[in-house]
């Protein structure tokens, strides 16, 4: 099982790195976009009071955006080419290659998120305090993003037009997850809407631990963490159901 998983991840990395130009362009855009955006919103200046919190949010956005893009584009291309069906004739269960793809996509998403966060941190001198309490919410944010990516991938198995839906969701995430302004500054109704989207609850939990000094127990009793767990479980369940349903259809349509 681990051998198959390793082979899938290795293949995914090689296929992605065979065409590096797209990744390089994304890295360039990701490093420039955030500071440019904050400069415009700050009416010609970078507001140090909002930068640390929005930086965490933009990292979450890039993780979601790029992991999803790599995953969905890769699946659609493989289905079109025929390698998807060929790779299903494995001794491993069908979900295992999918898990390998998800891990590969998350590696690229994380790489872009890291660069998109670190470059503004260093160039604009944004100070983000590091606290152990943020580790659990950060891990849950990662799982939340992967659950959403899995859901998109399950849809992409049968719908080559998934790209449009993906663009809609990632645009909404960029607008509402706190990348422009901290969630605390939103009106209640908009904050409630934003929390339905992936990443928002995770970013809220992280910012509560990093910038408000709350403990994991406090964000649990405060309700942010339970909602994040429930949101992630709901996305995973929806992704799982769609995967079971769409995987068969994808094979029927393939080659």
């Amino acid at each position: 099982m681990l051998d198959v998983l390793g082979a899938e991840i290795g293949k995914g990395l090689r296929v992605q790195l065979a065409h590096p130009i797209g990744h390089v362009i994304t890295l360039l855009i990701s490093t420039m976009m955030y500071l440019g955006l904050q400069f415009v919103l700050g009416q010609g200046e970078l507001r140090q009071d909002v930068l640390p919190q929005t930086l965490v949010a933009i990292g979450g956005y890039w993780f979601l955006q790029y992991a999803g893009l790599v995953m969905v584009a890769d699946l659609i291309e493989e289905k079109r080419a025929g390698t998807f069906a060929q790779a299903q004739m494995t001794t491993a269960p069908p979900w295992l290659p999918m898990l390998g793809r998800l891990i590969t996509a998350s590696m690229f998403g994380l790489a872009v998120a890291a660069v998109a966060s670190l470059v503004p941190m260093l160039t604009a001198g944004i100070a983000v305090p590091l606290r152990w309490a943020a580790l659990l919410p950060a891990m849950l944010l990662g799982i939340n993003v992967l659950a959403f990516t899995f859901l998109l991938a399950s849809l992409a198995l049968v719908s080559p037009m998934i790209g449009a839906l993906q663009s809609l969701f990632t645009s909404l995430v960029l607008l509402l997850n706190g990348s422009f302004l901290p969630l605390a500054l939103y009106p209640d109704w908009l904050a409630a809407l934003a929390r339905v989207l992936p990443t928002t609850l995770g970013i809220e939990a992280i910012t509560q631990t990093l910038f408000e000094g709350r403990t994991v127990a406090e964000i649990w009793t405060g309700g942010t963490l339970p909602w994040l767990v429930a949101h992630t479980l709901a996305l995973t369940a929806a992704g799982g159901l769609l995967f079971v349903r769409n995987h068969r259809r994808a094979l029927q349509e393939s080659s």
Partner: peptide
């Protein structure tokens, strides 16, 4: 083992060696 008609069957962006290593490991 199978070669299916009308499909690419192998990854064009990988080398012949990498393709064989990948598909061999998929078979356990």
């Amino acid at each position: 083992g199978a070669v299916l008609e009308g499909s690419r069957n192998v990854y064009w962006s990988l080398s012949a060696w990498q393709n064989l290593m990948y598909f061999g490991r998929l078979k356990g």
